[in-house]
């Protein structure tokens, strides 16, 4: 198995990680670094449970090879808080009850953070379109949309 060291800035901390060329970024985060907040749903780009920020843009970490991340910055759900306090997006999901089982939530939090950094005050249509890559089995999405609207209003 071809292995290599990669240097990745994960949630603000530089990490040197020994990876196999065939590992995905998702496997590296969960199994290599123990950052299990990022979830694996479909493993093929459809569900968004594995969404992280790669150099500031959302990506499905199940469709990123670990060595691709060498020299780059990764932000996972574990890195969204500010000094131990929930971010406005996380807080809004709690206040609106924008989750039930919570499996999809890390992906939604990362996608919402990215959405609001691009469109600070999105319409409901913009919210639904921009979160179309995140699937939720439980909520029916309405409370998620409300949580995004609350986060936009409290930013």
């Amino acid at each position: 198995m071809p292995t290599r060291h990669i240097n990745v800035n994960v949630n603000g901390t530089p990490r040197e990680i020994l990876v196999d060329s065939t590992w995905t970024l998702l496997e590296t985060l969960r199994d290599g670094l123990g950052l299990t907040g990022t979830k694996e749903g479909c493993s093929n780009g459809n569900c968004g449970a594995c969404t992280v920020l790669l150099d500031g843009k959302t990506a499905c970490s199940c469709l990123v090879l670990a060595p691709e991340a060498d020299g780059r910055e990764v932000t996972t759900v574990e890195g969204l808080d500010t000094g131990g306090r929930l971010s406005s997006v996380q807080d809004a999901f709690v206040k609106e009850g924008g989750l039930q089982c919570g499996f999809c939530t890390p992906g939604f939090l990362v996608s919402t953070t990215f959405l609001l950094s691009n469109i600070p005050d999105p319409t409901e249509d913009e919210i639904r379109l921009n979160l179309a890559g995140n699937l939720c089995r439980c909520t029916g999405y309405d409370k998620i949309v409300k949580a995004v609207q609350r986060a936009a209003a409290t930013k």
Partner: peptide, 8 residues
């Protein structure tokens, strides 16, 4: 695809 897909 989705925004995540379009970013890549």
């Amino acid at each position: 695809g989705s925004v995540q897909i379009q970013n890549r």
